[in-house]
Design a protein around this nucleic acid. Sequence first.
DNA 1: GATGATTTGTACGTATGTATT
DNA 2: CAATACATACGTACAAATCAT
Lengths: 241, 241
Amino acid sequence: MAALERVNGVALWRQIADSIRQSIASGEYSGTIPPETLLAERFGVNRHTVRAAVSALSREGVLRSERGRGTFIIRQDSYVFPISRRTRFSEGLSEQARVFDGALLGADQEMADAALARRLSLEAGAPVIRLETLRRADGIALSRATSWFPAGRFAGIADAYREEGSITRAFRRLGLADYVRRETEVTASHASPDDCLALGLSAGAIVLVAQSLNTDLDGVPVQYAVTRFAADRVRLAMDTG
Amino acid sequence: MAALERVNGVALWRQIADSIRQSIASGEYSGTIPPETLLAERFGVNRHTVRAAVSALSREGVLRSERGRGTFIIRQDSYVFPISRRTRFSEGLSEQARVFDGALLGADQEMADAALARRLSLEAGAPVIRLETLRRADGIALSRATSWFPAGRFAGIADAYREEGSITRAFRRLGLADYVRRETEVTASHASPDDCLALGLSAGAIVLVAQSLNTDLDGVPVQYAVTRFAADRVRLAMDTG
DNA sequence: GATGATTTGTACGTATGTATT
DNA sequence: CAATACATACGTACAAATCAT
């Protein structure tokens, strides 16, 4: 594998670890991964380097090595987040997780900058409420979101969310019975130190970043959110059938 | 901060380079990027580390530094891929790129394994045609896709695609006038060596992985595809308004 | 034009991580 | 496990080009 060279700022063992993870996800291996010596030969590296890769995956909870027996694949749960006009994370997940909750990490009032004001159809500098929230399923952090709401219309949103643990229910409490998702834009990037802390990720992990806009039934924006999903625990599903 | 690399396997400067590239793509910067000292402070690293990141991006043709003046953005390539029931990549992109084309990297006939057969509503072991394709905009590789088609119905799909450069037109040529996207599932992972080669990415880059199913108007599956997008050049947009 | 602030370029030193032998 | 060569990251200092005043 000539492509594996250390010139790009990514350690060989990390590239090999990612390759192994990929092979596991694609079903190429089942039960155990091949022996270290075989992998070393296949990747064209020293056995020590393969060991470093396996060690990293073990730390991340993907593999478990047993002396004399082999290295076993630990199945990890992955959650599907539906994205549609009627997206309700809490409802979509309730079938997959036994315990599902949202926590309020922080709240603040600030002034909308030009880009945010445009998205929420407000005047630049208009007051908005920012919520930092965390979603968990069965005790595992899945996503953290930063949401902005027009401050005039949703003054008590922070308290409402804190007590309800759900945007849908917080909206309902403030008199907004229904809302729809107008648009979602998905990208991906490396997890920031903040992401790692909040989501319990190892440094260098990947997050799916979704920017979304919700409106009321008259098309008036009620929430703009940037949500960061732990990419190895979550799939985003768009049903367009 | 030096400890980051130990846990991670991805060099700090590489993570910062990716982050800068992401910010450029998302339109956060325009014209120039912030000064090195400011970026260093913002990322919490030494100025040299930022310089290593900028240096890498300069080698890749994204940035150009001028002493005393600043660091200028050369390529600000960000393409939005719409995902909807009527997704037509070629149509959605034609407004954003001057030159847009699809190339056939390879084609093969194989037998559907259990998972693929289920997705295409075929018997396990049924013959399918696999296409490896690459999409470019203005000469820049945006995505590579592996697609499977029922071999019985779309025998000449490889030749048709090779000559048309588009799935939509290849389908039309084989008598399928129209089709719809039924579902799409999005995840993200590190770029494999193959991805790096095909998409011109640096090791450690991120790809958005979309698994999608297309059906004809009667709901019969016609194509299952796994598409790998260069995450720093592409945003996936779901319009649910 | 001169001055100082800003910004990128260069150099040296130190410590630690990475990968092979 | 040790030795080795190279990459990564920080720290400090100063030089050179540009820009606002």
